[in-house]
Structure formats: structure tokens, C-alpha cells
Design a protein around this nucleic acid. Sequence first.
DNA 1: TATGAACATGTCAATATATACATGTTTAAT
DNA 2: ATTAAACATGTATATATTGACATGTTCATA
Lengths: 194, 194
Amino acid sequence: MRNLKYAILGLLNRHPMTGYDIGKEFNYELSQFWNANHSQIYPELKKLVEEELVYYDIQISGDILEKKNYSITEKGKKEFLTWLHKDKPMEKTPKDIFRLRMYFANDLDVESRIHLLESQLQQHKKRLDSLSITMEQYPTVPSLGTDRFGDFIVLEGAIMRERNYIQWIKRCIWYCKNKKNEEEIKQLDYSVEL
Amino acid sequence: MRNLKYAILGLLNRHPMTGYDIGKEFNYELSQFWNANHSQIYPELKKLVEEELVYYDIQISGDILEKKNYSITEKGKKEFLTWLHKDKPMEKTPKDIFRLRMYFANDLDVESRIHLLESQLQQHKKRLDSLSITMEQYPTVPSLGTDRFGDFIVLEGAIMRERNYIQWIKRCIWYCKNKKNEEEIKQLDYSVEL
DNA sequence: TATGAACATGTCAATATATACATGTTTAAT
DNA sequence: ATTAAACATGTATATATTGACATGTTCATA
């Protein structure tokens, strides 16, 4: 697999940065589809240096603080592009603990169920709001050859995903609140508004 | 975390079954939000027995084949319900390698990008079809207190998730094709100028 | 009755991930 | 000058997960 390897190579392919910077990326935009702790990043960078896919320059920040500024090598670039070109089969669906809980929720009284659903709803709404604010940075669709195009489509994907999750939670709440008219419920369709 | 623990307890809380059966569940409906290999399941069951959260009866299948039929204990039931009641904060967004690839895809020519997107699109459509067929088993919404209600809402969630992913991929393809035309038009403009 | 698919249970090694431990520097604000 | 937040880089331990190794039985069917 070595997915972290390619995530790091991809970032360094954009521009050189330190391990700390990579960690920050994983906590910002990328966090919508990737993440890693620094305890994973530093050893991986070490490995990538050994494999001659990246190298670093030491920069002095302030008086004595040594920063390792990592760059991708030609070999690294080549390996990254090979990975990027490969048409990989669809991944397994991701694990989702909240769905797992809802799967088993018939053991919960309806009030508790609604409470858990409402709590998740609030959290997802909050995330959607923050993603929407980020989206305001894009008045138009960036052009295809730029980094910002990648930033834009995954941000849009994240927004769509959150909207969709919110819709599902709302449906679950609706079912819980309306035990009757079961025939009617099935008439609704699951179309997603954009 | 011990999420597998609760996934197993939840299943055994529905009804007793073998480790093999649990593995099958993880490859069927549950696979839309949970999975585990048998190499993870058997050791976990062993642990749960030690913790007295489950126990097993040995059943003879055929002449000599011993099957371990696992059941949940009262202690296990209690611990499962405590877990189920707890209002947990939202999980980190799941990792998604295809989104990661698309994030970096500006290094790909437009044709390759569209090819990768179309390939994913076909696979997600196929999964959506199979989920939709499963949904045909539910002519009405099952009542709240039954296992089938849990089955139903997560199946509906899986369908919504696939529809949404498909919409996102289609949007990405649309952007690629439109921008491509724009660039072609630009090329034409240049040639006219020349 | 031979055969292959599904049933059934386990271990082992490698990798991936999370959390805590450990140590310091720089920068901006008070 | 003090302080707190952010910068910066690592290691260690525990847990989670994957994929391979290992072994055997039962059942349907050709």
C-alpha cells in the first residue's frame, strides 16, 4: 500500500517543505480525505530519503534551530507519477462508527436514538459551515493545470459529502419521529440537492 | 477504541453465531460501514471470552467438525448498551485514496484524469446497482424496534453515499471536459492570431 | 466417488495508526 | 524579562489491520 508515501511525495511534488509543514497540511485541507500524525511522518520521511525519493536541505531558523526542508528527487517524481497514472480498483467502503451504532440502535429507546442523531447532526452542520466558508475563497473554478484545481474539487467533494451525511441523519430522525405512515415514507426519493 | 469489540458484541446481541458467521456478516450488509478479516475476529473473540463478555457452546456439524457458537453474556450485554448510549464526538473524516489522487491530479493530462474518473464512476455505479437491488427487499420501512430497521437505514445511507459520490465524480468529469474545451478554444484563438 | 466450493478455526509477520513520551527553539505579546 | 503559542524533530509503546500461512470438514453435484 504505502499510501502515506504517496501522500507525502505528492505534497513535496507541489513544493519543498518540512515534516512539520506536511503535518500541518494533513490537519488543514487534506484532513478531509487524509491525515497522519508527526510520529508517522518523520519515520516515513527517513525511509523516503533512504529510498532516494526525497532529499533535504538543512536551514537555520533564528540562531540555532535546524529545519529539514524536504524536496522530491527525479526518481521520486517518476515513482509518484507512475502511482498517479495507475487505474486502481475502488477502495473498500470506509468504516463508520456512527453508522455501526445506528445499525444496532434498535436496542435504544427512540428518545436516545433521536438525541444521538441530533448531536451528530449539529456536528456535521458545523463542519459544513466551516467548509462553506473555505469555499468562499474560490469565486471561480481554478484552471485544470493548477494545484488550486485539486484543492477545489476535493473541497467541493467534502461539502457534498457533508450535505449528504446531514440528509441521511435527517431522514433517520424523521423515521424515528414518524413511526406511522410507513407506506408514505417509502415514496420519498433519496435525491441530493446540490 | 476497541471498535471491533463492540461490532462483535452488537452482532452477538442480535443472536448467537460462530466466528465464521461474524466474518460473513462483515462481508455482506455490514461491509458498507464495517469489516474485519477472520484473522482479526478469532483473536478478538478469544479476548471477549476471557473478559466474560461472550461465551461459546461447541456444536458438532456432520461427523466431527466442531463449531463454536458464540453468545453474549449479561455482562457483555450491559457493556454493549453502555457503549451504544454514549454520545461520542464525530469521527475524523475517513481516508479516501481516490480523493487523494484527484487532489494531486493536476500532474495528469486531462485525458488520463477523465479516464481515471470514468473508471471509478463505473465501479460506483455498479455498487449502487447492487445496493438498489438489496433495497428491493424492503417494500416498507421496518418498524423501529426490529433489527431490520437498522439494516434498512444503513442500507439507505449506503445508497445515498454512493449516489453522492457518483455526483461528485460526474462534476469532476464535467469540469475536466469543460476546461478542456476552453483550452482547445484558446488554442484555436492562438492559431487564428498566428 | 471425485471434486470443488463453502464451511470452519486458528496463527504469524508485516504494516499502519494512535497516543504518549521527550526535548528543545522561535516569535509575538505582555 | 517573562510567558504562551507555535515551531520543530524525534522515539516508544500499544493497538489495529492486512495478507499469508496452515489445516481440516462438509456438502452438493458431476
